[in-house]
Design a protein around this nucleic acid. Structure first.
Lengths: 336, 336
DNA sequence: ATGAAAGCGCTAACAT
DNA sequence: ATGTTAGCGCTTTCAT
């Protein structure tokens, strides 16, 4: 015998009221006489009634769930953003459907489509580049989208980031000042505008200010893994590079460990600045100096922005730039 | 003018067929003549029709989404499990609603309830202890539940784990053999049966085999953080402890760094074994020796098990024990 | 303050 | 192979 599900209709019958009244009670509508409210609540409790969110979603056209597209939760960078997102989502009574995209374009499109099919009220996207196809899908539905730690050069959708150009310029200048003229720019996906445009721009700006010519051969593109970083160490030594800016923390740890294994003294003979200040930066020995990206906050603010858009509130500015700091730790010499 | 949503009815009208036929085409039902299928698909494409998963969920009583309750995605241990879960979920056309519980009982209960309200087809739970209240909620609905990296001593729900007792016993024996008799057992939440019952049991077993009396004062309970580990270092030195088994990787890195900062040689004068083999174990210097918990696989197998249960397939054994290995790395002396 | 009734967009018998 | 028809459990006018 299947366990019968209790519906709003059952409650209405037992409480001698209409479905509408039960609905009002459940949704906290004030237009209910206290005595009836009490009676209804009593029946709800007695029958152990639980509103069916799917039915509610169909009727109200709101699911109170948002889709979160993330390259890989296993990367602390994204996990931290996701945590910020979920906390704020919970605060505003939303749930998140988390989907890993592996930065894979077709997977992103597919994920986006199932998210839209599931009628999410909004989407938070993290990734590399907003391809044209992706943008087309975004605008095909009117579901609001916010980018977290991801930029859209065209600023068509909301986004939350820091000023990557300024941050990078600052630390590269610091590196030059501490150190010498040969600084590597080590990045994951240069196709990502954050890396290939903004950070690289900051790097070039700093060189320019110091009167150092830009050397293409000091720009490296590789994977966001420890192994990739270790592999790069030898090349640093061969090219007699004295310092490096790295766009990913795992990659930075790999490079750090690779240099140390090769007998190089860090930071005396080689300085490293990394970008995300995820918690692994403090696990490294020496601890990694880093741009202090407010990871959790980027996620949290992105979700907050999304709630406003979903709620059709007035938005002052949909392109949000958060402040950042610099952590001078063990992989750079002078503090400031 | 609101953009009108295209429904199955619109497609039916345009294609001169019934809704049922459109539904059949959309759901890949073979009972459709190829020519009509083609015609319907053409209209679907032309109108840019997207099936509404919420309506489908209400009608079919299946949402193809599963709830995942996790203490904190920001912990690599859980992030790795979550990744395994999501990959298999995607493979079987499910999406996951990810909810952080912070190991907080009331939050767990609340999250579980909203997940059930959203009519998830199944739930994967990760956490500490299955409290009675939680178990009551689990059985209150017939929604299938599988535990990933979490044990239920009563084995009432499905679960995927390794043999924690044997794994711990093995490495403690190794530590004793390498080293000496004073081995600390450092754990997060002893209330978690994995720590307080199984791992501690393995620890005691190993001591017993070696004829070493169990010393309560060598059992430490603390938080799963780097800071907590660093704080513990001094105590290790004062008590003249020569080795430690640690239940969490972040905690282990903290301890490792703390010992090194105190001038202790690792592994020569102090050996460390940690438990989860998350990727940070390879970022540490020296790299952490560890039980090789198949994190991704635990998540993947848990999700696979859940799909079987949701699909009412025959299950051989709902309490699954996966194999594990031991990684002998830099924080222990002899290899084996 | 409460009720009646019409959907929301789809699936799933059941007919034909 | 295709169509008809009830729902699924709820929200939301519109009355009263």
């Amino acid at each position: 015998m299947e366990k019968q599900t209790i519906t709003i209709y059952d409650v209405a019958r037992e409480a001698n009221v209409s479905m509408a009244t039960v609905s009002r009670v459940v949704n906290g509508n004030p237009n209910v006489k206290p005595t009836t409210r009490k009676k209804v609540l009593e029946v709800i409790d007695r029958l152990d009634y639980r509103p069916n969110a799917v039915a509610r979603g169909l009727a109200s056209k709101k699911t109170t769930t948002v889709g979160v597209i993330v390259p890989d939760v296993t990367n602390l960078f994204f996990a931290s953003l996701a945590r910020g997102i979920d906390d704020i989502a919970t605060m505003y009574k939303y749930n998140i459907i988390l989907a890993n995209s592996d930065q894979n374009e077709s997977k992103e499109i597919q994920v986006l489509n199932t998210l839209l099919a599931k009628q999410v009220d909004g989407i938070i996207y993290m990734g590399n580049k907003i391809t044209d196809e992706l943008r087309a899908e975004f605008s095909r539905s009117k579901t609001p989208v916010v980018l977290a730690g991801t930029v859209d050069p065209d600023q068509q959708v909301g986004s939350v980031n820091i000023d990557y150009i300024a941050a990078t310029e600052t630390i590269i200048s610091k590196l030059i000042e501490n150190n010498n003229k040969k600084i590597a720019f080590i990045s994951t996906a240069l196709a990502n505008p954050i890396n290939g445009q903004y950070r690289l721009k900051g790097y070039k700006n700093a060189l320019l200010s110091a009167g150092i010519p830009f050397d293409e051969s000091l720009v490296f593109e590789t994977a966001a893994t420890v192994a990739a970083g270790e592999e790069l160490a030898q090349e640093m030594i061969e090219k007699d590079v004295k310092g490096a800016y790295v766009s990913d923390d795992e990659l930075a740890i790999g490079l750090l460990n690779g240099m140390i294994n090769a007998g190089v003294n860090v930071p005396e003979d080689f300085e490293i600045f990394t970008s995300n200040n995820s918690k692994i930066t403090e696990m490294a020995r020496p601890q990694l100096s880093s741009i202090m990206l407010p990871l959790y906050d980027i996620g949290a603010v992105a979700m907050r922005l999304l709630t406003k858009i979903m709620n059709k509130e007035e938005i002052d500015e949909k392109t949000i730039t958060l402040p950042y700091k610099i952590a001078y730790r063990g992989t750079t010499t002078k503090e400031d």
